[in-house]
Design a protein around this nucleic acid. Structure first.
Lengths: 343, 343
DNA sequence: GGGCAATATCGAAGCGCTTCGACTCGTGGC
DNA sequence: GCCACGAGTCGAAGCGCTTCGATATTGCCC
């Protein structure tokens, strides 16, 4: 392995000079810089990461904690993770992958050992076990998601409450009076995952305000589960003319079932989803949807982290950033049958 | 931050003693060990990762390179990644997440800088640009996937050729004489991704051997793409009575389309998939399938890495390990209509 | 033309850990 | 009763890098 000292010798300068060429923290003459650069090139020098971290107390690594569970929409998770990795790399940082399995102690471990300078947490619960660790050790951190009490924390998320409201608004505007919500999987609610409850809150609030009926049912993504939930919904509320789907894996089963039971979309029932654009656009009926901007979330999370890492510092970098949801109208929503007849 | 020296002072021993308590590389009396452990506990000591890596030249980190692309089945990728992380953690290692974006140079960077001791590569192409780097720098590495020339490399993968053969065998055994393959997305073939071509090879070989007709069409996962491919297949080969699906996102669209065009599964056509168990079991018709053992792949990859890292060393740890595919019969396959009539 | 800023470079002191050699004790063999 | 030896511990020398003074070397102002 080539060391900085060897580069220095090769270039005929001192070790510190090479270091300054690399970091740019002190002025170096053009000639020297060139010579050093050439030596680095020729010798194929790579600074030793550990030595760097030790001397500078900066590891240039951020930890990303992803959930183990698979009852959330997995592609969204991966997309966020990849966006985090890509954005971090662009800033010269690497990403350490932590699974939820190890729990809060993993946070303590990687920040306490100086392995990671900062952390990004995904799949945040309303009352998340990792939060006490964050508040105690206070490493730079960003949550993708919103806990019940975000005070003093740095959070980024889609404004799911607004997303829910947007869905109801769109459907109510078309004339629907009874809306059913095919929610996330039961486990998501059991864990009090923030986004699910906030969406529901938004849906309810707006439905209440607009005087629209709203029925909510958690639902797994399997075909059978969707069939069961759909049957119950139609049984309890025959007047339902629109669905809001939050569990993306339930989208296709729902469409298939509606089709099979002779309900045309959007002529007989409308469907609006909260899901990634790709899912909405590729569905068997292109879906009117509120996009989950996974990439944007990952990117913003990293950017907030760096704002805190390199920025003015202090607690002023905390706070909640909620991305404004956007509803894109596609083929799956339209006026309810009643309106069509009279329209 | 608490250092080893402080622990030593607190416990009334020398720094090296603390180190040996931690590593167990030299005998330490029970009494001393206890005292040191207590001090570590009380002070909340965490060894500094960088210092450790520097002194021992072992970072206890392995790098995992995941593809950026999204035309492969994403949940499989995430599941492998999570399995890798979990298994590595159980051995005291952390996982660094690299995206394909940076290309081969990322490999050089993380191994050259001592950041990662070893690498695991996913989404291996038949002629992968990262292989030259591996052969040149020769860091401990395991590929999840199989390149065209695996000589000197350490590979783990499902035996996709056998998987393909298994599908054909199962269907031929049921009496099918014309089989259509709904393949992976065109991009997968364009990149010469190993698993796709090997599956196809296995399918063709066995079909040839058994005198069964085989028609292969690459296919994206979108509903429209599947519809197009299905129409063409049925047009070209009206006698097709069975489908093998390799692109998991195409599964539901295919089932929906068959249903809609009045073809019952498995009465009129059989469907066999190569996909994760979860997808097969949760499909609208539970699918006869060859499982893609994502977790097992991740675990085996890490285990091979450690065998090489801590084991006897030398090139004897290279080689290819192909997991034997298992076909599980579910509801989606049965005899072709012709057989049923006469049976 | 003496002094004073930059500018450019060097040497040395760590960063916190691992590891090697050396030292001090018992203990058992003979 | 002496030697050899293993068990248990310590001190010191790095690992490769950053960074903080110093030390030249240059202009440039008045």
């Amino acid at each position: 392995m080539v060391t900085l000292a060897e580069v220095a010798r090769h270039a005929g300068v001192s070790a510190s000079t090479v270091s300054y060429v690399l970091s740019g923290k002190r002025p170096i003459s053009d000639l020297t810089r060139r010579r050093v650069r050439a030596s680095i090139e020729q010798l194929g020098y790579q600074p030793h990461a550990g030595a760097r971290a030790l001397a500078s107390s900066r590891s240039r690594i951020i930890a990303l904690m992803v959930p183990l569970r698979t009852d959330m929409y997995v592609p969204v998770m991966l997309e966020i993770a990849v966006a985090v990795a890509t954005t971090a790399r662009a800033r010269g940082y690497d990403v350490l992958l932590l699974t939820g399995e190890e729990g809060p102690s993993a946070l303590r471990r990687v920040t306490g050992s100086g392995l990671a300078e900062a952390v990004i947490l995904m799949d945040v619960q309303l009352d998340d076990g990792r939060l006490p660790v964050l508040r105690a050790a206070a490493p730079p951190a960003v949550l993708v998601g919103l806990p019940a009490d975000p005070a003093g924390l740095n959070c980024v998320d889609l404004d799911f409450a607004a997303a829910g409201a947007l869905c109801v608004e769109h459907l109510a505007g078309l004339g629907h009076r009874e809306i059913a919500v095919v929610g996330g999987s039961p486990g998501v609610y059991a864990r009090h995952t923030g986004f699910a409850e906030r969406t529901l809150g938004g849906l309810r609030e707006r439905a209440g305000r607009l005087g629209v009926g709203l029925l909510h049912r958690p639902c797994d993504g399997s075909h059978d589960a969707v069939a069961g939930v759909l049957a119950r919904i139609l049984d309890e509320r025959p007047g339902v003319s629109a669905f809001v789907v939050q569990n993306e894996t339930a989208v296709e089963p729902l469409l298939a079932l509606l089709r099979r039971t002779g309900r045309a979309v959007p002529e007989d029932v409308s469907v609006v989803a909260v899901c990634p654009e790709a899912v909405a656009a590729q569905a068997s009926v292109p879906l009117t949807s509120v996009a989950i901007p996974a990439q944007e979330l990952g990117r913003r999370a990293v950017e907030r982290l760096f704002a805190r890492l390199t920025g003015p510092g202090g607690p002023d970098a905390t706070g909640v950033e909620l991305l404004t949801p956007v509803l894109t109208v596609r083929a799956s929503s339209g006026p309810p049958p009643s309106r069509r007849l009279t329209g």
